[in-house]
Write a protein that binds this DNA or RNA. Structure first.
Lengths: 120, 120
DNA sequence: AATGGTAGTATCCAAATGGAAAGTGCTTTC
DNA sequence: GAAAGCACTTTCCATTTGGATACTACCATT
């Protein structure tokens, strides 16, 4: 007789799996968390500010990732009516709901690094 | 005068950024969270069990991702002394420390899906 | 001897990811 | 009027990722 999936074949597991996929696809890529983290620290930053703050990112990537985040309403983009045109990027109210997740991510990463050091 | 990074140029931010990079690189890829989640539900599962439970994954990916997780001590691999050889995969004690992170990820994903439905 | 189960590996290939460098258009300052 | 700052976009390219398919090798049952 053939075996079939059983554990994940329950509604609650399907929902959990889908939720993980959703979150991952929205926050995929090398830079999303860095951008969000930096914006949470800096509150309001321009494009060039972000380019300077986030070590290693290029303008192409920054531009693309900001567009992704804006599309998902996690970051707002406001063109300011200033002499040389400036743009303000900020974390939206909804984007701020990611703070606990980013915190967990950070806490785990710090603990991981310590566990490696500690075991040496 | 040229501007320089200021916000992220503090030790605490450097550590945070590095922590995020660490966590992301360990848990990168399409399947790591699914594998961990399934193993947390099932406690002990064989290779073919995982292949059946995780919808869409192929044996090549499963094999590679399990090796990654094993290398980082998040999953254990035990060859059992059974008639046809079987292997038991399980989440390690250390891997279990990811539970809060996976929970946050799941909670946020569920809330995200509801916010899309709710705003329609 | 054929089928089916376990646990993978090997090969090939297409698509996605992301980095470097240069260019655009505008404005202000020296 | 040259340089420099802002906010990007475009082009090109190399690497990474991951999926499909096939295959190995061992054991048990029919």
């Amino acid at each position: 007789m053939k075996k079939k999936a059983v554990i994940n074949d329950t509604p609650v597991c399907q929902v959990r799996m889908q939720a993980i996929s959703d979150t991952m696809s929205i926050l995929s890529g090398k830079w999303k968390f860095h951008i969000l983290g930096t914006l949470m620290e800096g509150h309001k930053l321009g494009f060039m500010d972000l380019l300077r703050e986030i070590d290693g990112i290029g303008s192409k990537m920054l531009s693309k990732e900001l567009q992704d985040l804006e599309m998902n309403h996690l970051v707002s983009r406001t063109v300011m009516n200033t002499k040389p045109i400036t743009v303000e990027y900020a974390v939206t109210e909804y984007g701020a709901t990611l703070a606990p997740l980013i915190d967990e991510l950070t806490k785990w990463g710090i603990a991981y690094r310590q566990s490696i050091h500690g075991s040496k």
